[in-house]
């Protein structure tokens, strides 16, 4: 089964030339896809469309085999995909790290104690157990990045959508992040400009250019 299946997607931002005119993209279970492409090619837009945060002008989006038409179709399925935004400051909006990580599980309807348990487990997995009570806006760039990953992992998603997860990380933090990702055994689609990172962590690398996704030699 495809986790994400997008066919014949047309999309343009108001008053701008079209970003996509007939784009196809899919993420299969167990697959790890890397997406490269120049700035402004529409990489983040692709993810926003897949999550239903932008509406395609034409074309079909399927999540977990179900056709998505409107917001009410997307809303219950969104937390099954863990979407990590490009800028951690967009994603960390709760007072403390713990509250931010527990936010998703609480929305999923978990009991407070279960949500906390999950939040603590997610922080622990990222080596951030000591950060639970820290204030989100006082974290360093690397810590923020790891915290956003924790907020997403705490959802126990079935796949990850990662938008430039390694930008601005020092080598040690990047290594930690990669190790956690690999250990998660989740399928993912990841946007990055870092070819080496994509080669290490993906079994398929696509290049998005002029509205088309073209497979790249993954060596």
């Amino acid at each position: 089964m495809s986790l994400i299946k997008m066919t014949g997607i047309h999309f343009a931002y108001p008053g701008r030339p079209p970003v996509f005119a007939g784009l196809d993209f899919s993420l299969e279970d167990g697959q790890r896809v890397g997406i490269l492409g120049p700035n402004g090619a529409g990489k983040s837009t692709l993810f926003l469309l897949a999550m239903g945060l932008l509406q395609a002008d034409a074309g079909a989006v399927e999540l977990f085999g179900q056709t998505m038409r409107r917001e009410s179709d997307f809303a219950p399925l969104r937390t099954r995909l863990g979407y990590c935004f490009q800028d951690p400051d967009d994603q960390l909006f709760c007072p403390t790290v713990l509250e931010d990580v527990a936010f998703g599980p609480l929305n999923q309807g978990l009991e407070r104690s279960q949500a906390l348990e999950r939040a603590h487990a997610a922080l622990e997995a990222l080596g951030m157990a000591g950060f639970a009570q820290r204030v989100t806006y006082q974290l360093s760039g690397g810590e923020k990045r790891l915290a956003t990953l924790a907020t997403v992992l705490a959802l126990r998603p079935q796949a990850l959508l990662l938008d430039e997860p390694t930008t601005g990380l020092d080598p040690q933090t990047q290594e930690r992040l990669e190790a956690v990702l690999r250990e998660s055994e989740l399928p993912w689609a990841v946007i990055s400009h870092d070819h080496a990172f994509l080669r290490r962590n993906c079994d398929l690398v696509l290049e998005l250019n002029q509205g088309r996704l073209i497979p790249r030699d993954n060596r």
Binding site: L48, M51, L53, A75, R78, T79, L81, Y83, F85, D90, Q91, F93, C94, T96, L98, E99, A102, F103, G104, L106, N107, Q108, R112, L116, T151, V152, L155
Partner: peptide, 15 residues
């Protein structure tokens, strides 16, 4: 959008 992605439906949880 980030809040929607984590299932936000109007409740802002406090611990």
């Amino acid at each position: 959008q980030a809040m929607l992605c984590r299932g936000f439906r109007g409740t802002y949880w406090l611990l």
